[in-house]
Computed example of a mutant assay.
Amino acid sequence: MALAERPTTVAHLAAGPVEYRLERRAAATVVVLHGGHMRAGLALDEEVFAEAGLTVLAPSRPGYGRTPISTGTSVPGFADVTAALCRHLGISKVAAVVGISAGGPTAVALAARHRDLVERLILQCAAGPLPWPDRRTRVAAGLMFSPRTERTTWGAMRALLRRSPDVGLRFLLGGMSTLRPRRVLADLRPEHRALLVSLLGQMRSGAGFRNDLRPTGDATADVDQPTLVIATRRDGAVPFTHAQSLAATIRRAEVVESQADSHFVEFGTDWPAITEAIRIFLAADAGDIINPSSHNQPL
């Protein structure tokens, strides 16, 4: 299963250029803010929105793809850029903004700062208001993804995947799961292995990932929209405590706990149930969604 890069466009806004992919379907729009090492042309975890007939707008965050680091460099800054991009495209209402992994803080800021635009918030394995990542990961990432080493790092990873895919995948999964990488890899379906290899063959970090590691402010208390928090306790990249923190501080948050073995919850056996929960959440009238009972239960 290969992941094909999709066409993108660059909008020239007052804050600077921003790369985006717009796939128009129905009137309702979902904004997807992907995680680290991703850009607008790489569509991952979007099938649920396409199947629901929703328009998808996916911008490249600062430092990724053709969005320079100077365009809305900070989390609130790029939240405002994303709102401006919506206006530029004639989008006056967003059914949901989706924040995946390192894209979570920007999704939270967009919901908090632009309540008239955003109706719902979906956070998938998203970094929350807790410190992230840990010091060891921050130092290692700073070395591996600096302007001088980023290209070499990805070149070495792709060479390893060509020579020994299982070794390369175990190396990746070592930082993505709390379980032993060999076990996680053994439980992956063949099509998921192929998708991971294809994804890793196209990822780049640019200046974006180092920018993601900068401390961000906490806007969770200002989010009033219904929020779906999706996470797994076996996530080695963004600990489950982030989901707990998000649920504790966002007033109308509901947690859906995945049983996936790693940060890649789309590879979990319960992913069909997760996507069904997303469909139900999107189909409900935002004004009718009250504080879910799971919000007040221990996680």
Results as ranks from 00 to 15, higher is better:
6 R>E: 15
8 T>H: 12
8 T>Y: 13
13 L>K: 01
21 R>S: 11
30 V>M: 02
37 H>A: 13
42 L>D: 12
43 A>G: 07
44 L>A: 10
49 F>C: 09
51 E>A: 15
53 G>C: 11
54 L>T: 08
55 T>D: 12
57 L>K: 08
60 S>K: 12
62 P>V: 07
62 P>K: 08
77 G>Y: 12
107 A>K: 03
109 A>H: 07
114 H>G: 06
119 E>W: 02
120 R>T: 03
120 R>C: 08
122 I>Y: 09
129 P>C: 02
141 A>D: 13
141 A>E: 15
147 P>C: 01
157 M>E: 14
164 S>P: 00
166 D>W: 02
167 V>D: 13
167 V>G: 00
173 L>F: 14
183 R>V: 08
188 L>H: 04
196 L>Y: 04
202 Q>R: 14
205 S>L: 01
208 G>P: 01
216 T>I: 02
218 D>S: 02
221 A>R: 10
225 Q>M: 11
230 I>R: 04
230 I>G: 06
232 T>F: 04
235 D>F: 06
241 T>K: 14
246 L>Q: 04
247 A>Q: 15
251 R>C: 05
261 D>Y: 09
263 H>P: 04
263 H>M: 10
263 H>A: 05
267 F>W: 04
272 P>F: 07
272 P>H: 04
278 I>T: 03
279 R>I: 00
285 D>R: 07
290 I>L: 13
295 H>G: 14
